[in-house]
Design a protein around this nucleic acid. Structure first.
Lengths: 185, 185
DNA sequence: TAACAACCGGACAACAATGTCCGGTTGTTA
DNA sequence: TAACAACCGGACATTGTTGTCCGGTTGTTA
């Protein structure tokens, strides 16, 4: 839904425009995939292409702004004492079902942009916390690494990316059933 | 490597051109991924774009010709009495490491082209044979279906598709270690 | 209120990929 | 050998995306 054409409200609206672009990008990436045309994002935000490229010089810069929230949510959950590895994996799966873009980008091991690597490290680190705990409790095999989990989550994401949204929850459930067997002792 | 420019050898060379296109497409799909420009295939085959589109009206038609060999190999292996499910999964993984295009296309559940569905059914059927046998022997959980395996293989393929070729064998090994845990009883 | 700096947005140029078209070539048939 | 049908290949029109440019607008500052 192209947002109503936003009148030029001068420099003071810069932050507002930026926020509208991030919100629009979140929806567009979820609907049309990570490779959706950026012009579609500009249109959805009710903003000119010029403003989009001024705020975010390329696709990955825009995507990183969108993903920031996703990682923050994960980190917040991981920080809660009551949350364990399963909870974190459940949330990341839920995020993936909603939009595969985040995990797909983050789990691509050879992404050239250093900011993506930083983001992946943050995800690996928060998984590592829950993983160590679960391993100590004997709920996870000793030889499963956080890197394994990042890969597994990314693998699931790249499968879901090719699926219509309606089939994603069921497919994710079935695949986790297989993957869990290899994670548990 | 652009094959040497092929002189126009008239109608009698039609079959030869077709074969050159399939061979070139196999390499291009392996090197540059399934979405590589078709003009690159024509160039690699030493053939004009016109000839490419005359033989194969669209990408999927060309891909199906390439994949035909892959499925035939799988079916031949599955037909051997000495081969079990592991052997078939090993071969399909090997094919995936070489080129992710085949499994990626075949495992996309909602592909519009009916010929893709036929191909997927062939793969599901040959897996089902080995699966039934392995289940009877108690080497596979009772509730694992051939559809699960097709999805799992496709999931792995879509992960490998984003990886440089050098990292694929190791990643495939690690992911199968997880997946195997969910397949075995 | 006058001048200005920052910002806006869409037109547009540059580029890339697809698929069509057609003049030209080849082998074949009479 | 003459005429023809099939096929060849690349030029090109088309379509779609990216990223830039610039005339115009806005709020601010003096």
């Amino acid at each position: 839904m192209p947002a109503a054409r936003r009148p030029n409200r001068g420099p003071s609206a810069a932050a507002e425009n930026r926020a509208a672009l991030i919100a629009a990008a979140r929806e567009v990436f979820a609907d049309a995939g990570y490779n959706a045309p950026l012009s579609m994002v500009a249109r959805a935000a009710g903003v000119g292409q010029g403003s989009l490229y001024r705020h975010f010089p390329d696709r990955i810069s825009l995507a990183l702004a969108v993903f920031e929230d996703s990682v923050a949510d994960l980190e917040a959950l991981a920080a809660e004492p009551s949350a364990d590895l399963d909870d974190v994996l459940a949330l990341i799966t839920e995020q993936t079902i909603a939009s595969t873009a985040f995990v797909t980008v983050v789990s691509t091991p050879s992404h050239p942009d250093p900011r993506v690597i930083v983001l992946r490290d943050r995800v690996a680190r928060l998984l590592e916390g829950g993983l160590a705990e679960a391993r100590d409790a004997g709920r996870v095999r000793a030889d499963v690494t956080a890197e394994d989990l990042v890969l597994a989550v990314g693998m699931l994401a790249s499968l879901l990316a090719n699926l219509p949204a309606a089939e994603r929850p069921e497919t994710a459930r079935r695949m986790w059933r297989l993957l869990r067997g290899g994670i548990e002792p």
